[in-house]
Every structure is written in C-alpha cells, then in structure tokens.
Amino acid sequence: MRPFDYQRAERLTHAAQLTADADTLALAGGTNLIDLMKLQVETPQTLVDIGRLSLGEIADEGAGKARGLRIGALATNTATAAHPRVRADYPVLARGILAGATQQLRNKATTGGNLCQRTRCYYFTNIDQPCNKREPGSGCGAIKGIARIHAVLGTSPHCIATYPGDMAVAMAALDATVEIASENSSRSVPVRGFHRLPGDTPERDNVLEPGEIITAVTLPAPVGGIHLYRKVRERSSYAFALCSVAAVIALEDNRFTRADLAFGGLAHKPWHDPRIADLLIGNEPSLALFDKAADLLLEDAQGYGENDFKIPLARRTLAAVLCEATGVEP
C-alpha cells in the first residue's frame, strides 16, 4: 500500500470538495478499496473517510401507494437485506445482496461502495499485467489470456471486464435511482445508466465524476410480482457470479404483465435490455418464448474462448428463472 494522507470528512460538502481532486478517493466500507490499495491497483494520495457521515438511513420515500424506499449510501448491505421493507416489498434486492460475498463483508460493505465495486478481472488486480482499465493504453491481458470470468455482452477491444456485484443487478431490475451529490449540486441517475460500457475508456466504471458522492439509492414504489435472484457460481457460496439473473415477474390471465430482468456476470454493467420486457409482456409464457427472449439478450454476445460457455449458460439461466416464475414445465 502506498502512503496516503488520511482525512475524515465531517460533512458531505466537505467530502465532495476533497474528492474533487484527481488523486483523492472516498473510503466507505473499504471492503473493495482497501483490497485494491494493498495490491497497489488503487494508489490515492488522499483517502477521505466518509464512513461517519449520516448517510446510513433506510427510510420510506413518499407515501401511500407511491411509497418507495430510500436506502442511504452508507447503509450496509446487511442492513439493507435485513430491512423489513426490503424483505417484504423488494425481495429480489434482499436475495441479490445475500447471494453476494459473506456476512462479514456485507456487514461492512455499503450501498454506495457496492455500486462502485471494481471488476474482479485477474489482469486488473495484478499490477504486473497489462490492463487498460487500470493503466489506459497498456493493453488487455484477458482477451488473449484467461477470460473465464469475463464479459460476453457490451465488450470492447480494450476491455472485457465484468461488473462483479449482485446488489446492483437487483437494483437494475427494480429500476432504482442513484442519488449523487457534489459540492454545489445534486443529480439522479437510474441504476440502469449508472455503470458504463468500457468502449475506449474502460478506466471509467461508471458515470460518477470527480467530486461526486453517492448519497442514496431510491427504489420506486413496490410493484409486487414474483421476485427471483438466480446466481450461478462455482461454489455454493462466497464466489462471484458466472451469470446471474434478477427478475421481477408478474402475470395476469397467464400472460406477462411485468418482466423486469437484469443480468450479472455478463457485462461491464448490470445488463438490462428493455426489448426483453417488450417481447414478453402480453404473451403467454412458453419455452419457445423464453428462447426468443434469450435470442434477444444474446443477439450480440461474443465469447472470448474461455468464457464461451457463458452464452449458453445465460440462455439456460434465463429459462430457469422464467420457468420458476411462471410455472412452465421444461
């Protein structure tokens, strides 16, 4: 770990001000950042500890039928997953969070930090390897290397890394909104638009600008339906997703009325393709229809040898989720 200047932010504006500096990073739970600092993947000159700001509240947003939920950026993953309203109204989020990491890590990891979690690409975390994300212009070691855990959707010739988290995939299915503050202003970004594709600037994971701090994630009013989070991994716990599907599904008269789906482990961001809901809604569930949905999802999928399997795996995992939600027998 490189030496750094440690500062504790006493107020949000103070934190925003400090993090406007290019060599400054904000520290919340630290479960990802400290890991990367030890590897010298992250080398901030100043670390701004925002952990004691009052951003941990989980509270109703709005009232009545439009009553959403605002999850503070510093709410821990544990607090969110255990929150009665999350469990009752947004079970896909609770399931997604609980499918990730371990209890120890979730006790420390925060909402904002988890959104900013960086990729697990083996070449990104090894500073003696080329990586355009870590060191723009150095090349991508994964494309010709071991790409087992890498992306098949939305990749670029510069980067095939995945966003590794689960929480954000569930939030993408729920169409949640990220609230962002800077020293003098604030803005909102849908979770579905928060993470970026790598393109030719893979060093940028998301749309957060210097000096911007995530303050909360807001969930829209509950929509009911069947909530599922399905994660395929190499061991039964404590492993990143090879592929995951977050689904909020509703049917009336055996026809889809809602099909909010998001995918993890496949791309540089939680993957949401609005065409899938368009295809499903109004139609009767069937294996043939699920196959068409997978065709849409995977239309532009590209494997890199080692990860070719993710394409059929994503198709099958989607079918599994849709069968479970609709009762269609395979």
């Binding site: 083996y122 090894n126 010709k144 071991i146 061991r235 039964s236 404590y238 990143f240």
Partner: peptide, 24 residues
C-alpha cells in the same frame, strides 16, 4: 489457471482459487 501468453498464475488468491466453503 495459467495465462497462455506469459505463463503467470492468474487465479492467485482465495477468491478465485476455489477451495470448498462450509456450504459445499
């Protein structure tokens, strides 16, 4: 898992080399 280009061990930690966990 070894890199085919430069021969380094890519999964050189306990997150990516999967020893069984309790639930396994």
């Amino acid at each position: 898992l070894f890199d085919p280009v430069d021969g380094h061990l890519v999964n050189c930690d306990l997150a990516e080399y999967h020893v069984p966990v309790n639930r396994d």
